[in-house]
């Protein structure tokens, strides 16, 4: 999931009896599955939660370009280079769709980026792990995008209209990402040398647990999930979509002929789901706090690009102003004539 542990600012889910007429009407609209639109009245906490979640989601798309971009210059064939470039470009596009949705809530992209650059806003923990081999490009597509898609399919029904519509567009585009990642790994497993096969297994070993962490900790540890569910920003619990992801991924793993680094993973006939081992939440919280393998370098790269680009953005504005002046002078002259 690209948005983890989004703060709602509430201590507990607000009781309906405590709501004034306006908020009660808002909740009715939510219950009736009427989308909330930019101009609609909404509780302040709902607005803030959305900005936090959507911007975190957007930041994840943008920072997520870095681990993939790490292999773009080294892609082994032109076909793979084209695929990867198109995919990275899509991630950037998805970040932009999401910033665009968040801006309808009255927060500018400049503000959101500033929050990212100063460390106030977060992005998904997964992008603080390095891509150490070409197989990681396949594993990121298959596992990371796969986990994201489970989440994003759910978010197509989120209660805020612009966010839901951005998700529909993103889901439509993203379906190719997971397939290309998987196909890349499958090619290496089925037609590759031993070195290539080892590369794939090593990649899954490193990325499996961080992928499961993407869904965030079990829901009942904070009121945030419950509040997000009540507002229908979020439609399913973290463990529920994590389980859904595992159940759909393991059969794909078997087709690859690989394993996951979890001795406790086994099919449970009774529940109809896979059982899995305990996730190392200490690692997750360390990464969230800034102590993952790549946190500092990811943020530094993003800040550097932004700062290096300041003169370009400024020049474009200066040029646009000059042109606008010339235009208005011309139209004044025309009036006089």
């Amino acid at each position: 999931m690209y948005a983890q542990m989004v703060e709602t600012g509430v201590k507990q889910v607000k009781d309906r009896a405590d709501m004034d007429a306006q908020e009660a009407a808002f909740m009715q609209q939510i219950d009736a599955e009427d989308k909330i639109e930019p101009q609609s009245w909404m509780p302040d906490a709902y607005r803030k939660t959305l900005v936090r979640q959507i911007s975190q989601h957007a930041h994840s798309e943008i920072i997520g370009m870095q681990p993939e971009g790490n292999w773009l210059t080294r892609a082994p064939t032109l076909k793979r280079k084209l695929q990867l470039a198109a995919k990275i470009q899509d991630e950037c596009g998805h970040g932009l769709y999401l910033y665009s949705a968040a801006e309808t809530l009255g927060t500018s992209r400049a503000q959101m980026l500033d929050d990212l650059h100063t460390g106030k806003a977060k992005y998904s923990s997964i992008f603080n792990y390095p891509t150490l081999s070409w197989a990681d490009i396949g594993a990121v597509g298959w596992l990371v995008d796969g986990a994201a898609i489970v989440n994003q399919v759910m978010l197509q029904r989120t209660s805020y209209g612009p966010y839901a519509r951005a998700m529909v567009r993103i889901c439509k585009e993203e379906s190719f990402h997971q397939r290309q990642g998987y196909e890349l790994l499958l090619t290496m497993m089925q037609q590759g040398t031993q070195a290539q096969k080892d590369m794939v297994q090593d990649s899954i070993n490193r990325l499996w647990w961080p992928s499961l962490m993407m869904f965030g900790p079990t829901d009942d540890e904070s009121p945030n999930s419950a509040q997000s569910m009540a507002w229908k920003i979020k439609r399913k619990g973290n463990d529920e979509i994590r389980q859904q992801f595992i159940d759909q991924t393991i059969p794909q793993l078997e087709v690859l002929g690989c394993t996951v680094p979890d001795p406790d993973l086994k099919w449970n006939e009774e529940t109809g789901h896979y059982d899995y081992g305990t996730i190392d939440w200490a690692e997750f919280f360390a990464v969230i706090k800034g102590n993952g393998p790549c946190n500092k370098q990811r943020l530094a790269r993003k800040v550097q690009a932004h700062e290096n680009g300041a003169w370009v953005r400024e020049a474009a504005i200066a040029y646009a102003d000059k042109q606008a002046n010339i235009k208005s002078q011309q139209s004044n002259t025309n009036k006089v004539a």
Partner: peptide, 28 residues
């Protein structure tokens, strides 16, 4: 494609990548 994630603004990131994609396609 060396410029990926180094563009001065995100809109330009997609634009540079589009150009790069076009050029690789032509080269192929």
């Amino acid at each position: 494609c060396e410029l990926c994630t180094h563009a001065p603004i995100l809109e330009e990131e997609t634009a540079l990548m589009n150009t790069s994609l076009d050029l690789f396609g032509q080269a192929r």
